[in-house]
Simulated assay, not measured.
Amino acid sequence: MWIVAIGWMYVVTLMAATEPSVVGGMMTFLGYGVLPLSLVLYLGGVRLRRRPRAAPRSEPGAAPDDADPPGH
Rank of each mutant, 00 (worst) to 15 (best):
L35I: 15
L37N: 00
I3E: 15
G44M: 13
V11L: 13
V11M: 09
E19L: 02
S58E: 14
R47F: 12
I3Q: 15
L43I: 11
I3A: 14
I6K: 11
L37E: 02
A17Y: 09
V46W: 08
G31P: 02
M27R: 04
I6M: 05
P52F: 02
A54T: 12
A55R: 13
V4L: 13
A67F: 08
P70G: 05
Y42H: 11
P70D: 09
P52D: 02
R51D: 03
G61Y: 07
V22C: 01
L30W: 06
V11G: 00
R49W: 12
P52C: 01
L14R: 09
T18Q: 14
G44H: 08
V4M: 05
L41I: 15
R51W: 15
A62L: 15
V4D: 05
L14S: 11
R51I: 06
P69A: 11
W2V: 08
V22L: 14
L14Y: 04
G31V: 10
S58Y: 08
G25Q: 07
P64C: 05
A16K: 02
G24F: 11
R51S: 07
L37H: 01
L35S: 06
P69F: 03
A67C: 02
W2S: 12
L37Y: 01
L48F: 15
G7R: 06
P69H: 07
A55V: 15
L48R: 14
P69N: 05
V34F: 04
M1N: 12
L41M: 15
E19M: 13
L14F: 08
Y32N: 05
G71K: 06
T18S: 12
M27T: 12
T13S: 14
D66Y: 11
G24D: 14
L41Y: 07
R47N: 06
D66Q: 07
A55Y: 10
L14Q: 10
E19D: 00
M27W: 04
V22G: 01
V46Q: 10
V23F: 06
P69L: 06
P56N: 01
A16C: 03
